[in-house]
Design a protein around this nucleic acid. Structure first.
Length: 103
DNA sequence: CGATTGACTTCTC
DNA sequence: CGAGAAGCCAATC
């Protein structure tokens, strides 16, 4: 288990309800600005073994990153239950719901 | 243990 | 503005 991985997990677990983060944001916060893909990989890999709110992670555009399927539907549903609003199908209003400010 | 992959990002053209 | 390419690095095969 790499330190980066652990940090990413910690960060994701610390995201409060009703907020979302992009992969890039998580990567930066974890200390590796260019490891967005690892965040994705770690996320879908570890979320099943750890209690990670994977649905609070979206891509840079605020869209649900996962391709069509149950996962995407589930994420949308979970986020709506947390009070997030979708501008359109599978797209969340990042401007208001992002977690960490982008420096 | 090398090669492949990927729920991304960002810069160019 | 939209499409294409490159970059990055951990987990999997």
């Amino acid at each position: 288990m790499q330190p980066f991985t652990k940090k990413v997990i910690e960060i994701m677990k610390s995201i409060p309800e009703g907020k979302v983060m992009s992969y890039g944001q998580v990567a930066r916060t974890a200390g590796n600005p260019r490891s967005a893909r690892q965040v994705a990989r770690i996320l879908h890999s570890m979320s099943e073994k750890q209690d990670i709110p994977w649905h609070r992670i979206v891509n840079a555009k605020g869209e649900i990153a996962i391709k069509d399927g149950e996962g995407r539907f589930t994420q949308r549903l979970l986020l709506e239950e947390e009070g997030l609003r979708f501008e359109e199908e599978g797209k969340v209003s990042l401007s208001r719901y992002q977690y960490f400010p982008d420096p």
